[in-house]
Design a protein around this nucleic acid. Structure first.
Length: 678
RNA sequence: GGGCGAGUAGCUCAAUUGGAUAGAGCACCGGCCUUCUAAGCCGGGGGUUGUGGGUUCGAUCCCCGCCUCGCCCA
């Protein structure tokens, strides 16, 4: 509702500016005054106009206030407009009228046409998911929820992809471990998987350790009694390279083991993410990008569009290269080679990662001629939703397609800034400016560990590392907190609390509530930081259920629900009743704290809009906390069930109802469930 | 060496993208459970926003220099 009022004010002011001064402002801010006593909305528009009109801000504000006050009939929810400070226009709302609008759940809509593709998670399928992957998946999943159409907003059509690099060097390393460290064949690998499954062990955990061992084996690590000879190290490097090439080509034992193991781990990743309420629509795989020859079509198109050319001189002689972003104007005027150009195809004919990525992104926008994946069902969720996977064979009859997006969001950490910019530059260079403009690298900083946390986990740190602000998670070293381990810990901690508080509940119910709380804490923890903040992970912070956490908000909802349970009434009835009672209790000191709760509760659509526009889910997380704080404030100030004045009691009940409604919604966008009791 | 990001309370982070008195959580100190759940609430201390300049009605935010840290590239 707050958004609607902002829009109405903006429209009205635009009309006045046009009519009175013949100026139009493309955009101007509508803020909130520092204190509610000064009104509900503040317009600094007079400052903006001071330069253009060569007039003092306060004089302009005076004229605008007069115009606005004279036409209040156009703004049914505004009570008055006054001038404050050096030229602010402060707007007071008709509290009763606004409350009735909010109670009736009238709010601005969000959404529009178009298909938006969100890609997130994209974990190398060679080891267990860790806390860094959790941040990625939780950010992506939350953003997807903000975009998608639902009961609250029209939203957009959304597809969620999880890219699987199943032919990369990381998978090859695990295959090297299985074949050369453990001497396993394809049959032996099958046996291992069956054995792990029968003992309820996780294959991704097994590979976590194996991957760390292989990484050390390459550099002559712990498995050797004496350091290996240089010739032996060279042989190991060659084994790695040969395995990688074998997997890329396919049709051999290494490739089959890679397929077997990576698919099993992908399945495990889906299970891990499902615990967090995260689901996917499609898993495009690197193997299909290769086997379906996406790059051939991409290269053809790049050559036609003139962004790819054969370098004939200098250090990149014999390579196909692309000029770097921003260098178009500095093209080699004197015919000298552009040494700064990005190599796309090496002189030996192999394609770089960026090259494959350009082709893949052309496909995402439906710009790759004649190429599409085959689609087969891979995983079915509880609600019958199907997760599809790419295949180079025939598609299943009822398969959807996922290319042809109007906008894409790639949730990838900030270390991939350069490669992502290269892809965008390629699209722009090819003349696909619309695609380039709608390509969002949803960049975020990594999750690291505090040195303290790493030591607690038993990792050997150098003295230098101990002095660092944080230690990077490293699959290669085996450093990191596994996603499933962390969830287990959080749920166990929550269960201990629930057991103590609600021994009367059946065990299954207590476990369900503990799961909701543990996951709520985790998702909130990953969302409360803005994207370009490095999270230095520590168990103490992550395991907290107090203060600015998910459980704090969940608890506020439970408190609100308890009011209705004890009262024997429903939130719906309370909101309905607001339409017909006297709302004079909204004014005065007492009423103001009630009114502030309504006002804050009415901002959800505004916050969703901002979170989408800035690709910053943290704004919504913060909002959920602030609303819960505001509600707790109200809860302690006004004892609802003891209220003797019937009109006041009805208003208070409705206040609890509206806060509960919006907190529950906000949490749902964050992917956090609201437990019935806690 | 080049590119990107960051530096705000003891600690971890915000600041509606240039607005009014820079706000939260944690930690610390003090108070509040016979009331709708204390996973909560109230109060307190704690700041030259790394540093030096500039832009303007107004700068934590924008521009330039310097210092420190992280990441990426070579």
């Amino acid at each position: 509702m707050y958004r609607t009022i902002q829009q109405q004010l903006q429209a009205r002011i635009q009309a006045i500016l046009q009519q009175k001064y013949e100026v139009t402002l493309a955009q101007f801010a509508v803020e909130q005054p520092p204190a509610i006593a000064m009104g509900e909305l503040a317009l600094p528009v007079a400052f903006e106009l001071a330069k253009r009109l060569r007039k003092a801000p306060r004089a302009i504000a005076t004229e605008l206030a007069a115009e606005l006050n004279a036409s209040l009939s156009e703004l049914p929810l505004v009570a008055s407009v006054e001038i404050a400070g050096a030229g602010y226009l402060n707007v007071r709302l008709d509290r009763a009228a606004v409350v009735r609008e909010i109670a009736a759940d009238r709010h601005a809509d969000i959404g529009g046409p178009g298909f938006k593709l969100v890609e997130h998670t994209s974990i190398n399928p060679n080891k267990a998911a860790h806390i860094g992957h959790l941040r990625n998946a939780i950010l992506g999943d939350t953003f997807q929820r903000l975009l998608r159409s639902d009961a609250y907003k029209s939203g957009y059509q959304v597809g969620v992809q999880n890219y699987i690099d199943n032919t990369g060097v990381q998978v090859a390393d695990v295959v090297v471990g299985l074949m050369h460290l453990e001497g396993k064949t394809l049959a032996g690998t099958r046996e291992l998987m069956n054995d792990l499954a029968s003992r309820n062990h996780r294959i991704d955990f097994y590979c976590w350790d194996l991957y760390a061992r292989v990484s050390q084996w390459y550099t002559g690590g712990v498995d050797d009694a004496t350091p290996p000879e240089p010739a032996e190290l060279a042989r190991r490097k060659q084994v790695r390279l040969d395995t990688l090439h074998a997997i890329e080509h396919g049709g051999n034992e290494a490739a089959e083991i890679a397929e077997l193991i990576s698919t099993a781990i992908v399945r495990r990743h889906l299970e891990t993410m499902q615990r967090l309420g995260i689901e996917y629509d499609f898993l495009p795989r690197e193997s299909e990008v290769l086997h379906l020859h996406f790059w051939d079509a991409g290269r053809q198109l790049m050559l036609e569009k003139g962004v790819l050319y054969l370098e004939t001189e200098g250090k990149n002689k014999g390579c196909y290269v692309m000029r770097r972003a921003g260098n178009e104007s500095e093209a080699p005027a004197d015919g000298a080679p552009d040494e700064d150009a990005k190599v796309i195809v090496r002189s030996n004919g192999t394609v770089t990662y960026v090259g494959k990525d350009i082709a893949y992104h052309l496909w995402k926008f439906g710009l790759l001629p004649g190429k599409d994946f085959g689609y087969q069902p891979f995983y079915t969720y509880a609600d019958e939703r199907i997760c599809w996977i790419s295949t180079s064979g025939e598609s299943a009859p009822n398969a959807p397609t996922f290319g042809r997006a109007d906008a894409i969001y790639n949730v990838i950490d900030s270390r991939q800034n350069d490669p992502q910019n290269n892809v965008i530059a390629a699209l722009r260079g090819m003349g696909f400016t619309d695609a380039a403009d709608h390509y969002t690298h949803f960049s975020y900083e990594m999750v690291a560990m505090t040195p303290r946390c790493a030591i607690d986990l038993g990792y050997q740190l150098t003295d230098e590392d101990r002095q660092r602000p944080f230690i990077e998670v490293s699959g290669r070293k085996g450093y990191g907190v596994k996603a499933d381990d962390l969830m287990d810990k959080l749920i166990a901690a929550a269960l201990a609390e629930v057991d103590a508080r609600h021994p009367e509940l059946p065990a299954a119910e207590r476990e369900q509530i503990a799961r909701q709380i543990g996951i709520g804490a985790l998702r909130y923890f990953m969302l409360r930081y803005t994207r370009n903040t490095v999270i230095a992970f520590d168990f103490k912070d992550a395991l907290s259920f107090e203060g600015e956490t998910g459980p704090y908000v969940q608890y506020a909802i439970v408190r609100a629900a308890n009011i209705f349970r004890k009262d024997g009434s429903t939130p719906q009835a309370a909101l309905q009743a607001v339409q017909s009672i006297d709302l004079s209790a909204l004014s005065g000191d007492d009423g103001t704290s009630v009114w502030e709760t309504w006002l804050l509760a009415s901002r959800l659509s505004l916050l969703i809009e901002q979170a989408i526009a800035t690709a910053e889910p943290a704004y919504l997380a913060r909002y959920a906390f602030q609303l819960a704080q505001q509600f707790n404030n109200f809860y302690h100030k006004h004892h609802v069930l003891n209220e003797q004045d019937p009109a006041k009691k009805t208003l208070y009940l409705a206040t609890a109802a509206v806060a509960m409604r919006e907190m529950t919604r906000a949490l749902a966008y964050l992917g956090i469930e609201s437990p019935p009791v806690m």
